[in-house]
Amino acid sequence: MKIQRSMGEKIFDFFNILLLSLFGLLCLYPIIYITAMSFSDSWAILEGKVWLYPVGFHLDAYEIVFSDGNILRSYLNTIIYTTVGTLFNLTVVTCAAYPLSKKRLKGKHFFSLYFVFTILFSGGLVPTFLVVQKLGFYNTIWAVTVPGAMSVFYMIILRTNFEQVPDALEEAAVIDGMSDFGIMTKIYMPLSKPIYAALTLFFAIGHWNSFFNAFIYLQDKSKFPLQVILKEIVIANTMNDLGTSAVGSSAMEATKLLSENLKCATIIVVMLPIMAVYPFVQKHFVKGMMIGAVKG
């Protein structure tokens, strides 16, 4: 049976769809604009002709990106840091969330407050830097993966998800002689695949976009992730702007234009992996977050 909708509901739906469509376009336009600039002619960018589509289509910027040894090496570094860091994150939050989800854990309330305290207060940048340096992590992969391995916020979400697993499953496993580690890996984790898919996406995006830790703790340029290289391109473009305004030379103008193309092409290359992976985990995304965030 078709439900009759009132005029007020139809008007609300119309403006709701209109506003959401406009908001979606506002979010999508920067990506369209950067993509168009990365494929456009340098002089067309200077003259302000690029808005929605490439003008003077060419692939010079992408040829530079994929032929530059520093960019390719930093791309590989970013993939390694993201993979290792995400595995660290998932391991640490799982090992913390599982025991804290147990009512039989003595001092559960104290340990929960202990973890929450770290959300409100931290040691600060300088003490953290000194700890990383004393541990021998400075200028190594561990400097960008270990310090942020524990995320209390996502640990709480995972703990709430574990608390919803029926106790009868654990009791049956104990009767069969299964250890706590076996219960965690063979019962709790398989039943929590949606939340793990969501957490994996969150952690991977965080590491993929991470810039500050690598900028602070890495000194060797061969270990830089792609975001630090992109920062150098942006800074070089800014310096070219200053040089062009002060000197006005055609050489500086050409360098500026090339940097603008290269910056946009690098941004697109950085975004592509996340944009390619997200559609495959989207079906688990909302479900996983809702399961882990609502109790009962």
Score class of each variant (00 low, 15 high):
residue 169 L to Y: 10
residue 19 L to Q: 09
residue 80 I to P: 06
residue 238 T to R: 12
residue 269 V to I: 08
residue 147 P to T: 09
residue 156 I to M: 14
residue 50 V to D: 00
residue 108 K to W: 09
residue 89 N to F: 09
residue 139 N to P: 10
residue 6 S to C: 05
residue 48 G to K: 01
residue 116 V to F: 10
residue 14 F to K: 02
residue 30 P to S: 04
residue 199 L to M: 05
residue 34 I to H: 03
residue 98 Y to C: 05
residue 92 V to Q: 02
residue 84 V to H: 02
residue 178 M to V: 13
residue 96 A to D: 03
residue 174 V to P: 10
residue 93 V to P: 00
residue 154 Y to P: 07
residue 249 S to Q: 03
residue 73 R to I: 11
residue 210 S to F: 00
residue 113 L to R: 08
residue 159 R to W: 07
residue 235 I to Q: 15
residue 269 V to E: 01
residue 198 A to N: 10
residue 199 L to I: 01
residue 24 G to V: 05
residue 289 M to Y: 07
residue 291 I to M: 15
residue 239 M to N: 14
residue 146 V to H: 03
residue 217 Y to C: 06
residue 283 K to E: 07
residue 25 L to P: 09
residue 280 F to W: 09
residue 193 K to I: 08
residue 103 K to V: 06
residue 173 A to D: 15
residue 102 K to C: 12
residue 4 Q to M: 02
residue 284 H to W: 10
residue 105 L to W: 05
residue 69 G to L: 07
residue 247 V to M: 13
residue 109 H to M: 14
residue 55 V to G: 05
residue 88 F to H: 05
residue 213 N to T: 08
residue 176 D to E: 02
residue 157 I to Q: 02
residue 268 I to Y: 00
residue 221 K to D: 15
residue 81 Y to R: 00
residue 130 L to G: 08
residue 232 E to M: 12
residue 169 L to I: 10
residue 152 V to K: 04
residue 285 F to P: 06
residue 48 G to I: 08
residue 296 G to Q: 06
residue 192 S to R: 06
residue 206 G to V: 01
residue 117 F to R: 11
residue 37 M to R: 06
residue 80 I to L: 12
residue 202 F to H: 10
residue 266 T to G: 07
residue 88 F to D: 07
residue 289 M to P: 12
residue 292 G to V: 06
residue 240 N to T: 14
residue 176 D to F: 02
residue 114 Y to E: 14
residue 235 I to V: 13
residue 110 F to I: 13
residue 239 M to I: 09
residue 90 L to R: 01
residue 267 I to L: 12
residue 207 H to F: 04
residue 166 P to G: 03
residue 67 S to Y: 09
residue 252 M to G: 11
residue 154 Y to H: 10
residue 77 N to T: 11
residue 144 V to K: 03
residue 140 T to H: 00
residue 206 G to Y: 06
residue 12 F to S: 08
residue 1 M to A: 03
residue 3 I to M: 08
residue 289 M to V: 14
residue 46 L to V: 15
residue 160 T to C: 13
residue 238 T to S: 15
residue 268 I to G: 01
residue 127 P to Q: 11
residue 102 K to D: 11
residue 43 W to P: 10
residue 279 P to D: 11
residue 54 P to R: 01
residue 275 M to W: 12
residue 102 K to V: 12
residue 77 N to S: 11
residue 285 F to I: 02
residue 177 G to K: 08
residue 39 F to D: 03
residue 214 A to D: 07
residue 144 V to D: 06
residue 52 L to Y: 02
residue 56 G to V: 04
residue 132 V to C: 02
residue 136 G to N: 04
